[in-house]
Write a protein that binds this DNA or RNA. Structure first.
Lengths: 335, 335
DNA sequence: TTGTACGCGTTATCAG
DNA sequence: CTGATAACGCGTACAA
């Protein structure tokens, strides 16, 4: 019950100083006599004082929080990013406000506007739908932005990308090196940069190996398990010959393996499969899934650090592209 | 650049009324002449006015946000809960502030204190470490609390539980009905209510079928994939005979299957396995994993609704326990 | 029905 | 080095 909020005023009275002084010690301002500082601190302790967040935010026009928009709150990929971002931020006394964009323009726009209305000091966005112009505008309007998996020239230093093209290339190359030539691919939505780049890598690898590109072996899906399953079923139904599939995400690969199995095909004996992202589950699947590892935690870490730098107006390290790495496991064998 | 924040003052000037009136239409107060109301609204639009969140919160001592603490930001289980909670809340104009407790007392306490300092209007907590007393105290201090998977008499209506005991019972019973008698179990941490109840159900089922309880077949783990794997390896190493394992979570079951496979044992031919939770991945695994389905989305929904009711001081529906359901798939066969 | 004026808890700008 | 006191933007009894 004893729920009287103790304010800076009470502390001031108790310590026999002005509110201004209390505020000063609260914010670690220089030029306060040690003796006084001590007295104030003691008063705070005794009263159990805690500053009111809203007052502070209102008075200094800074919220000490940064916004994070992910495509989805569930799932491993963004889960890992959230974990890392949150850890970095809390360590620095910042709070992380999470919103989901769910891949639709309206939702993404609403989420961003919401965070803006909450006056986040910066935002980390993973967005497919917002346009370059919109993003640049937001960034210029006073709330700096860190972009995950986008590449906008004007603010390239604020973009964190993974080398999807090389990843797609290496995944396909890996299949080719194992003797496969009829290689299908199931991609994420083409609105998504990652999906496009991975596909591009796939084409390049084909080309470099003088394998003709066959559109009928390319299916667009949605990065998720059921989507991967459906796409694979469609592929099977179409009746084209293929001995390997490169999936644009592990989740789709998992769905794909199921579809393959249900069609009486065995992985990897009949069809080799490789995924992308390398979710922590892969090595526990059966067969263990080969995949391209994206260092998700690193990305979360980097994004958070950059956001913080932006808030403090510090210069950024130069733009960078995170490397993805081939993880060979059991789902790919030589043909 | 045009970054002048437009305030209620500007709107008032533009509409030729007092600030109070603007505030009234802003908050949908009755007793404002339609004509005026219209004029004010128009002024707001023209100026692109948006109320300052911090001022509002400060003035009315209410933040329009509720806090959600989960055990982990990653993973399907809490992911689904977050998704649902967020959806319900945004629909009602509330924001959801997510924090992770990570299963350690210090962290949980810090997260809760943080949310309190941010003056959330209510909290949804999934906590193992905080004591009943602490929770009750928080609840009485003005920030109502909804508890996921706890059972505290004094605030039972604010507790959302799933029927773990019955779930554990039915899972075990299912194994027994398939002819298994040497049934091992890998549980979650015993600090966790769910884990304890599931184990209790397991024991009860054994008892009802006159199968002696053998402590050497019971291993405590941590709900996660690697934990399940290690526990299973330990079980194998101990050399006790068993033909089935009941895992306290799907993730542990997945790790378990891998350990089993690596030991040359096949699931379900050599060992039957059943999990708990029924993560959306289960039906895509091979073999498809039998499990006890917890309706996670329902839980998130319920929790959010209850939190909202508490904020509005509405009466709550009576306490409820969500049912879990057996999902028979491929990982259990008759011995 | 509308306006006045004060309060919310801090920070920031001046004097002193 | 410290203390008044005016912002910060909005809500709300109280008057009118």
């Amino acid at each position: 019950m004893s729920n009287k909020k103790v304010t800076i005023r009470d502390v001031a009275a108790r310590a026999g100083v002005s509110r201004a002084t209390v505020s000063r010690v609260l914010n670690d301002f220089p030029g306060v006599k040690p003796a006084l500082r001590e007295r104030v601190n003691q008063a705070m302790d005794e009263l159990g004082f805690a500053p009111n967040y809203f007052s502070q935010a209102l008075a200094k026009g800074r919220s000490n929080s940064i916004g994070l928009m992910v495509r989805s709150l569930g799932g491993y990929f963004f889960g890992s990013i959230m974990v890392e971002v949150e850890e970095v931020l809390t360590k620095k006394g910042f709070h992380c406000m999470v919103c989901s964009g769910s891949g639709k323009y309206e939702a993404e726009r609403a989420a961003v506007d919401f965070m803006l209305s909450r006056q986040v000091d910066a935002m980390i966005l993973s967005t497919d739908c917002l346009s370059d112009e919109e993003l640049i505008k937001i960034n210029q309007s006073g709330t700096p932005v860190v972009l995950i998996s986008r590449d906008i020239e004007e603010i390239r230093d604020q973009c964190i990308r993974f080398d999807d093209a090389t990843g797609g290339y290496n995944a396909t190359q890996h299949l080719i090196e194992n003797g496969h030539r009829d290689i299908a691919t199931v991609t994420g939505p083409m609105t998504n940069r990652d999906a496009r780049s991975r596909l591009q890598g796939y084409r390049k690898a084909l080309e470099d190996n003088d394998i003709p590109y066959r559109p009928e072996l390319v299916l667009e899906s949605n990065f998720q398990v059921p989507g991967g399953k459906q796409a694979t079923e469609k592929l099977l139904a179409a009746g084209h010959k293929f001995s390997a599939v490169f999936y644009g995400s592990d989740e789709m690969a998992i769905g794909g393996v199921q579809a393959l199995n249900q069609a009486g095909l065995s992985v990897p004996d009949d069809v080799s499969v490789i995924g992308f992202e390398d979710v922590p589950l892969n090595e526990f699947l059966k067969p263990q899934m080969s995949s391209m590892r994206i260092p998700v935690s690193d990305i979360g870490h980097l994004a958070a650090m950059r956001a913080l730098s932006l808030v403090d107006q510090e210069p950024l390290d130069s733009a960078l592209e995170v490397q993805v790495e081939l993880m060979e496991r059991e789902s790919v064998i030589a043909t």
